[in-house]
Design a protein around this nucleic acid. Structure first.
Lengths: 212, 212
DNA sequence: TTATCCGAGGGGTGTTTCCCCCTTTTTAAC
DNA sequence: GTTAAAAAGGGGGAAACACCCCTCGGATAA
């Protein structure tokens, strides 16, 4: 009996191509393909559609891999999730693993590694490359005071600051006094060691607070 | 006799998976796979390695699809190039087509469309979806004054403007008077209808002049 | 020869940045 | 339960910076 695999991936060509690969592996067969997380969750309502392994892309338009994994694990904790992504962004990988993924695979790998990862996940319960293992170890002792806490209201201000609005305009948009806005700005500058608004904009974009 | 296909794609998993798909098509077979453009050009020095079709990814680390296609067409104009990308960025598509690609395929397509595209490219010389055709038509009559010409020196200034430097500092970095820098800024603001430096930063990032 | 582009500058206004200062409310500690 | 201390909102004023005019010479090109 082969293990059943479901692929959740928005790029249909990659999805179908991967299906071909997996069906070529001796121990695995594809159950069906999904274009996004929502489709998977809908499909899973039928018990016949519950697979052994879900091969999950992280970046998807409708419902991303992290949200989907959390929802999936709540309903069907026995299903193993293997994350698949081009992203090497540390935060994303950690979020995905915290959501319950049993492994993390880069799209830039050999097919034999994919097969190996599937076997490992199904038989030992997890699969990780050296890179991801190192990342996990690194996340255990976070470099002192690395994470700066930005408050909700400050985040809101930052988004406004990433436009052509003056602080006065931002103030009236946020229903606050211009002086309060200046207060936000000053404390953010201090926290993040920034010198001016341009620096703030770059920071916001780098940290995905504002997406241009 | 089957037509030979070479895949140039940096994501090995996708590359191998695609190879599986193509080998499953009745009229095509994979000759070999390449991880980037440079690898392809090296391989092509041996006449035995010249394929009928090259399935080319656009975003690659070493040598991108556009550069590679230009170089390939110079040496082997008879080889048909089918571009493959997730990018729907108009400029990129047009660049690729101008470079000599005979078709443009989104990764978000069905495998039957891939097969159809390969057949069309080989037998009629081109393949385009409705989207790309519309894009081509649109590019013929560019909406009046759409493209703003930025000079080399202005581009350089914009990159500096996307940092925490003051204009005075930018001036000394570019070995110009602060007043000249102000001149650059003002003319750019006018050309691009911007109100302030924040707007310029956002513009630069959107248009990939500055990559954060 | 007349444009046009480029670098440079004068001067004025408004904005941003950076210091001080204050009250009120919420949270935590003693 | 009082006290202490953050957190949230607002303010004055000065200096630096950004923005916006308009000018002017020299090179370059039509």
């Amino acid at each position: 009996m082969k293990y059943s695999v479901v692929i959740v991936e928005d790029h249909i060509l990659l999805s179908q191509a991967l299906a071909g690969l997996v069906n070529g592996f001796s121990k695995f067969k594809i159950l069906y393909l999904c274009k996004n997380g929502r489709e998977l969750l809908t499909r899973l309502k039928d018990p016949k559609n519950i697979p052994d392994i879900v091969l999950m892309d992280i970046n998807m338009p409708i419902m991303n891999g992290i949200e989907t994994t959390i929802a999936l694990k709540e309903e069907h904790p026995q299903v193993n999730v293997l994350a698949l992504s081009v992203e090497e962004d540390e935060k994303t990988i950690l979020k995905m693993l915290r959501a319950g993924a049993k492994g993390y695979l880069l799209k830039d790998t050999e097919k034999s590694i994919l097969e190996n990862a599937l076997v490992e996940v199904q038989e030992t319960g997890f699969y990780h490359t050296k890179d991801v293992t190192n990342l996990l170890l690194g996340s255990l002792n976070p470099k002192k005071e690395n994470k700066v806490v930005l408050k909700e209201r400050e985040m809101e201000f930052i988004k406004h600051a990433c436009t052509e609005k003056t602080y006065k305009e931002i103030a009236s948009d946020m229903c606050l006094s211009p002086k309060t806005i200046e207060g936000y700005r000053d404390s953010i500058f201090e926290k993040l060691h920034l010198k001016n608004r341009t620096g703030l904009v770059i920071y916001a974009i780098k940290n995905k607070i504002f997406i241009p």
